Amino acid sequence: MGFVDEAKFYVKAGDGGNGCVSFRREKYVPKGGPNGGDGGRGGSVYIVADSQLHSLMDFRYRSHFKAERGGNGQGQDRHGRGGKDELIRVPLGSVIKDADTNQVLVDLTEHDQAFRAAEGGKGGLGNARFASSTNRAPRKATPGQLGEEHWLRIELKLLADIGLIGLPNAGKSTLLSRLSAANPKIAAYPFTTLDPQLGVLHFPWSEPCIIADIPGLIQGAHQGVGLGHQFLRHIERTSILLHVLDASVGEEQMLADYATIQEELSAYSDELKDRRQVLVLNKIDLLDEEELQARLACFSHLGQGVMAISADERIGLEELKNTLGELIDEHRSRGSDDLSGE
């Protein structure tokens, strides 16, 4: 089954247990007092972020989540048992919204961060609660309150340090497989990657980072064309964008491909347009030296280094890894709120 990055689901907290009407029946005590216990609180539904999960696959098989009802009160002042909570585990980067209003309720970005999606109903009061000096034998008890219930929507935005972007067939999947131990599907036709793929990039001097090969972008993606927002949603949270271009297609086409990606980023979000990018010209094994220098010169106006590699032939990969490692270290030292380039 494929990657799932959006789902609609129903949550229902447990109802509270009912209070009990009961009186003591003791030998040699002609008029026993009230001893009805309270009902137990219904269980609540919690959504919990889990760093071990990377997709919403479970929501394909289950869309209703219900917590346990509270137990009813009993005689002899015995209170009902509280209902068991229902825990829904989701990946980091999950955004929970109200399905009707589309209002964002919570953004789960840390491991074990929990959100109470539906609160359990309070238990009802037993008749022992209503005893007073003027009413020594109350026959009143209250029912348990209903638990909350909602239809919710969950959207997943991958939390990755580096996001691979580029048009279909630019060689991103091959590059991910060379930089990490990931094993994405690789073939010589567009849209090989229909789902985001994650890999771990290791450095000898620093902590590893997460790198994501995100579905290829086409013109009009910000309007939902092609894979549309399925692509753009996932790059919102990447610290660095690694823009991969196929350098073998010719200078004019390569520049057009570059412009397409930049226009889509800008149309989707001004913040994405200014996100730190590393531009990589791929498939240089198909070029001679003169052609390569001409391709590099096309981007001299950017004022930033342009890297030339061949993911397939493993050319230039060590230099690329070193550059990425330095940028990640720089980003981490500044803090996660600084995602833009200099």
Score class of each variant (00 low, 15 high):
M1W: 10
G2A: 13
D5I: 05
K8N: 08
Y10S: 05
V11W: 02
A13S: 06
G14F: 06
G17S: 04
G17V: 04
C20M: 07
S22R: 11
R24A: 15
R24T: 15
R25H: 15
K27R: 15
Y28V: 14
P30T: 15
D38T: 06
D38R: 11
G40I: 07
L53P: 02
H54E: 14
L56M: 08
F59V: 08
Y61S: 15
K66Y: 05
A67T: 12
E68F: 12
G71E: 04
G71P: 05
G75I: 09
R78Q: 14
R78H: 15
G80H: 04
G80T: 07
R81D: 14
L87Y: 13
R89G: 10
V90L: 10
G93V: 01
G93I: 02
K97H: 03
K97A: 06
D98V: 01
Q103M: 12
T109Q: 12
E110I: 13
H111P: 09
Q113R: 02
F115A: 05
A117F: 02
A117H: 07
E119S: 10
E119I: 02
G123I: 04
L125V: 01
L125S: 06
R129Y: 03
K140I: 13
T142H: 00
P143T: 14
G144S: 09
L146N: 14
G147L: 09
E148V: 04
E148C: 05
W151G: 07
W151M: 12
L158S: 03
L164A: 01
G166H: 03
A170Q: 02
L179M: 13
A181T: 13
N183L: 15
K185V: 14
A187S: 12
G199Q: 03
V200M: 14
V200E: 15
L201I: 13
E207R: 12
A212H: 02
G216V: 01
H222M: 04
Q223P: 00
V225N: 07
G226N: 01
G228P: 03
H234C: 08
I235Q: 03
I235G: 01
I240T: 08
L241N: 04
V244M: 10
V244P: 00
D246R: 04
S248V: 13
V249H: 00
E252W: 00
M254D: 09
A259I: 04
I261Y: 03
E264D: 13
L265K: 02
D270G: 10
D270H: 10
L272G: 07
L272W: 04
K273I: 10
R276E: 14
I284K: 09
I284P: 08
L287M: 11
E289C: 01
E289I: 12
E290H: 06
L292F: 02
Q293A: 13
F299H: 01
H301I: 01
L302V: 00
G303E: 00
M307N: 01
D312G: 00
E313F: 05
R314E: 08
I315H: 11
L317N: 03
L317R: 02
E318K: 09
E319K: 10
L327A: 05
R334Q: 15
S336W: 08
S340W: 14
S340N: 15
